[in-house]
Amino acid sequence: MSLKKSIYLIVIILLIDQISKVYIKTHFALQESIEVFTWFKIFFIENDGMAWGTKISDFVSFIDDRTAKVVLTLFRIIAIFGIGYWLYDAAKKQSPKVLILAIALIFAGALGNIIDSVFYGVLFNDSHGQVATFLPELGGYDTLLHGKVVDMLYFPLWEGYLPEWIPFKGGEYFTFFNPVFNIADMAISTGFIMLIVFNRKAFAKNKIESDI
């Protein structure tokens, strides 16, 4: 897979990701949802931290949330340059197609969420109890680097009360597959899964060169 094709793929994923996020942000209030199927909903939430909503300040108590947010965003920006170089190097060395495809997916997803984190606080006003406006006259809901990541894809495949005989959780209301995510998250997850499942194929050329 060539670098040119990888860039095309990245651009397509970024467009789908950002168009879907801008649409949700400008048509839904926070926590608003629409049921597409019983097992699939469009549910608008915003993620202020890392994966699963965790924050750096949850682990490092002496850093406040706003400082932690900037640290996380800057780390993501540095990481994207590293991933970009990895993609360029893999394409230049004509690495296996599965490796280049996986890196391109991870790069596109990471960049998609970075755009939210860096710019959305300036580009949109608040979504609490209202539909946000793009480029509001009174300014955005926060400053540069303090944007929140927009999530909207929710797949509650099963909801109900667990049987009493299940240890610890018996009798509790449970939702199977509770995370809410976005297109960028899907791209990142798919890329990592490809690297894990097709590990031997993805790094086959590198292993052969190291043996020589």
Score class of each variant (00 low, 15 high):
S20T: 15
I13H: 02
K93Q: 13
Q31S: 05
N206E: 15
T190S: 15
T143L: 14
G121Y: 07
G84D: 04
V149W: 02
G84H: 05
D65E: 11
K148N: 12
L9D: 02
E159L: 02
I19W: 11
I100G: 03
S117M: 06
F181Y: 11
I78C: 08
S57M: 13
L14V: 07
N182L: 08
N178K: 11
S95G: 00
A132I: 04
V70E: 00
P136I: 11
F44A: 12
T143D: 15
S6E: 03
L9G: 14
D58T: 00
D65L: 02
L30Y: 15
I24S: 09
Y8K: 11
L74V: 15
L101A: 10
A110M: 13
W158H: 04
G129R: 12
W52Q: 08
I7F: 13
A79P: 04
V98R: 04
G84F: 05
I56Y: 11
I166R: 03
I19P: 06
I183R: 01
V122S: 11
I24Q: 09
A102L: 03
I7G: 04
L135A: 14
L162D: 06
T143E: 15
I42M: 08
G121Q: 05
V71A: 13
F155W: 12
A132K: 03
I83E: 03
A104W: 00
Y23H: 10
F177P: 01
N113S: 05
D17K: 01
F44I: 03
W39A: 12
Y173D: 07
L74T: 13
D64Q: 10
I106Q: 00
A90L: 01
F177D: 07
E137M: 09
P179D: 10
I77K: 06
Q94C: 05
G49N: 01
F37P: 00
I45Y: 03
F81T: 07
I16A: 14
Y173E: 12
Q31A: 02
K92A: 13
M194L: 15
G139D: 09
Y120A: 02
I63S: 02
G139N: 10
F62D: 04
W39N: 08
L15C: 10
T133Y: 00
F28D: 01
Q130Y: 04
E159F: 02
E137Q: 14
I80N: 02
G171K: 10
S2P: 12
K205H: 00
E159W: 02
V197D: 07
S189Q: 03
I196Y: 09
W158R: 05
D126V: 06
P179H: 06
E137N: 12
T175C: 08
F119P: 12
N47V: 06
M194F: 14
L74Q: 07
R200Y: 14
G171I: 12
R200L: 13
F119H: 09
Y85S: 07
L153S: 05
P96K: 10
F174Q: 08
L87M: 04
S117Y: 03
T143G: 13
L3S: 01
L9P: 07
I78E: 00
G109Q: 08
L162A: 06
S57I: 00
I83K: 04
L101T: 15
P136N: 12
D126R: 14
Y85V: 11
W39H: 09
G139F: 09
K205F: 02
